[in-house]
Write a protein that binds this DNA or RNA. Structure first.
Length: 660
RNA sequence: GCGCGCGUAGCUCAAUUGGAUAGAGCAUCGGUCUACGGAACCGAAGGUUACAGGUUCGAAUCCUGUCGCGCGUACCA
């Protein structure tokens, strides 16, 4: 049961009766123990509005409500708070009830179940996942799990960046790989790349030109021999069986480097069959443009190359997802390219609605609410002056798909907070154009940056972006080091398994436990610490409880012959027992709040509080040493706590261990 | 310039969205216990919530201004 909501509903109804209009009771857990378990704050603001005495009004509300099945007498306190103390009997029943439902802890399903699209992760083609992708992936996954837990129909969407400017570069880099293979010169790209990187003065165009000249010549020559793409085609077939993601990456970076260095030089590639000379710096964008009709048979090798790059990239992402325990699969991938055919239709539809304006050659939507410094309208550009489309267009197309095909009632976009303006604009355009009915909720779920100790974005010592693989490796290694110190007697294999769970859990939890809206400082030591609001602390609390049960089963092993033991009657004699019970029962309302606000850190905070309540209980209330029936009752509280921690961490995508 | 966001204890973060005396963990200081897993527990100290006004029963939260930081700001995503 969601106690908070139950109280809210009953008290709100009583308020409506008392004052004749609807007003929220504003029930929240009490700020202090002396004020009971919950407090209702709504009376005061209503009284203000009605200009009546808040205390008198509170008394009226108290008289009008019947909470006798779950609460002691209500008290009006201070300027008009209503303090609620739950009945012990009620708490006992509820804990027993949730314990009987081990899968779901009797957390009620959402009253109105929605189809919720969660858009998260979104890696890019031919790039390795790095820390920049971590937050989206983890937060999105946790939200998806929570929504699913509450009975919503969750559709995960991995909006992979598989189109756009990098598109031509990818094809070009694979072409280079093919040419390398054809010349039987397997280290050509590496050699060239190293030479370019060693360039003493990258700011000097003459130097750059000099360094690029051999590469440029080779490029010309290769192109001359492959003017019809036949070599590309033949060798593509040959290399695809052996090519790996690790081959693709450097090739892609090589193309990037060449093009950035060629900027401002007069190096021209002119061996192409159409005799249109192209700047060396713009070959890849030329490739992109050339392939407007991507599906034509003569472009098959380009398409194959791109698809192959996509396959390699996604495989590499899957490894990360697998290690992270993220639920995304290939079925959830619907990249930007999936919307290519819809883009002209989106622009057409905007035109039909009369929303489209041409400005400086680009197709724009101007909405009144977006203005620049001088109060001039700010455009949302949906088509570039060269005819190309932008991410706004793709997002609009994706929205239409999600609403029309997936029947989304709510769409969550888990992306960096820097995209806030973009989403604000795109949402407004979608609503204005009627792409998304007003009943559908479009929500940007923004998050801040992961920072290093220096309060700058998290980088390696060398100042490079941290690859996710490396980050996870280090997390597991550090966890293993810790286990070796703290629990050296465990078998090695088990140590490794535990290290994985602890290491990955720590990374995820440290991310999820912070309010996602703000930047947070990443710290190895803090996230693996056993004190404070960390994953290991929670996992340790769990392992300790499990240890009690192992010991108990050992003691009582002969008594039970597989028969299900009845759920013990729970008594709450000690204040610590009672406080733990109240905390346990707040799981439902916490999960619901996480789903409503898309704030996973609320769940982390709750689990930490729960672990705290348990520790207090654990210290003051002996379990195995106490006599029946107290013993069974306390064991039940232990079990309820362990289950809540396990399910709670599970909703965050974090596993528990029996020993650590 | 304009827009958005942020500024809370020495450090890292909370504060149930306007509620009662702003809470945790680290670090510091002090204490407990032959310990159901010591990777423990309890306590103390630490705050004019950047600053100045305002709104009201009540403000870290809302409004105005100032300072500081971050991000964004027409064809990248």
């Amino acid at each position: 049961m969601n106690i908070r909501r139950e109280l809210e509903q009953r008290l709100s109804a009583a308020m409506a009766k008392a004052i004749g209009q609807d007003a929220p009771a504003m029930v929240a857990p009490s700020a202090r123990p002396q004020f009971g378990d919950y407090q209702a704050n709504g009376v005061m603001s209503v009284a203000k509005r009605l200009k009546t005495n808040p205390r008198e009004l509170a008394e009226k509300v108290v008289a009008a409500v019947d909470l006798s099945d779950l609460a002691e007498n209500l008290e009006v306190a201070g300027p008009g708070f209503i303090n609620i103390t739950l009945k012990d009997e009620f708490l006992q029943q509820q804990v027993a009830k949730s314990l009987a439902d081990k899968e779901h802890l009797s957390v009620p399903l959402a009253a109105s179940q929605q189809t919720v699209v969660v858009d998260y992760s979104a890696p890019n083609l031919a790039k390795e996942m790095h820390v920049g992708h971590l937050r989206s992936t983890i937060i999105g996954d946790a939200l998806a799990r929570v929504l699913d837990f509450l009975g919503h129909n969750v559709i995960r969407q991995n909006h992979v960046g598989d189109w756009g400017t990098q598109f031509g570069k990818i094809i070009l880099s694979i072409w280079h790989l093919c040419m390398e293979e054809k010349r039987n010169d397997p280290h050509y790209l590496n050699r060239s790349d190293e030479k370019l990187k060693a360039l003493p003065d990258k700011d000097d165009p003459a130097e750059r030109k000099k360094a690029l000249t051999p590469i440029w010549k080779q490029h010309q020559k290769d192109l001359y021999e492959d003017w019809d793409g036949k070599v590309f085609k033949d060798y593509l077939e040959k290399i695809t069986s052996v090519l790996t993601f690790d081959d693709l990456l450097p090739a892609y970076q090589f193309v990037n480097l060449v093009e950035s260095l060629a900027e401002g030089t007069d190096l021209i590639i002119d061996s192409s069959p159409d005799h249109k000379p192209v700047e060396l710096a713009k070959v890849s964008s030329h490739v992109t443009q050339m392939l407007q009709n991507f599906d034509k048979p003569e472009n098959k090798q380009e398409k194959d190359a791109w698809e192959y790059a996509k396959e390699l990239t996604l495989k590499s992402c899957d490894k990360i997802y697998d290690r992270l325990g993220v639920l995304l699969t290939s079925d959830d991938v619907r990249g930007e390219s999936a919307y290519n055919d819809d883009l002209p239709k989106v622009v057409e539809a905007l035109k039909d609605k009369g929303l489209l304006t041409e400005s400086e050659g680009a197709q724009c939507v101007f909405l009144d609410e977006f203005r620049n410094k001088d109060n001039e309208p700010l455009p949302v550009i949906v088509q570039k002056s060269d005819g190309g489309y932008l991410y706004a267009t793709t997002d609009l197309a994706a929205m239409r798909y999600r609403v029309c095909e997936l029947h989304a009632g709510r769409i969550l976009y888990v992306t960096d907070s820097r995209q806030a303006l973009h989403f604000k604009q795109v949402f407004a355009v979608a609503k204005a154009a009627g792409f998304v009915p007003s009943g559908v909720s479009l929500e940007h779920v923004p998050f801040g940056t992961m920072m290093g100790k220096n309060n700058r974005p998290f980088k390696t010592r060398e100042g490079e972006i941290v690859k996710l693989m490396n980050l996870l490796d280090e997390a597991e290694q550090r966890a293993l080091d810790l286990i070796n110190i703290k629990n050296p007697d465990l078998p090695d294999e088990q140590k490794l398994d535990i290290a994985k769970i602890i290491g990955i859990g720590a990374v995820k939890y440290s991310d999820l436990s912070h309010n996602r809206a703000s930047d947070y400082v990443f710290s190895w030591d803090k996230m693996l610490a056993l004190d404070g609001n960390t994953a290991p602390y929670m996992q340790y609390a769990y392992a300790r409880i499990r240890s009690i049960f192992r010991k108990n089963e050992h003691q009582a092993s002969r008594d039970r012959q597989g028969a299900d033991k009845p759920v013990a009657r729970i008594t709450l004699a000690d204040p610590a027992e009672r406080a733990l019970a109240v905390k346990l029962l707040q799981f439902a309302e916490t999960v619901e709040a996480v789903a409503a606000e898309s704030l996973p850190h609320l769940l982390c905070g709750y689990l930490f509080d729960l672990a705290g309540a348990f520790t207090t209980f654990y210290e003051s209330c002996p379990v195995l040493k106490s006599n029946e029936p107290t013993r069974s009752s306390r064991l039940a509280l232990c079990e309820a706590t362990a289950t809540t921690i396990s399910i709670g961490l599970g909703l965050l995508g974090i596993e528990t261990v029996e020993q650590m």
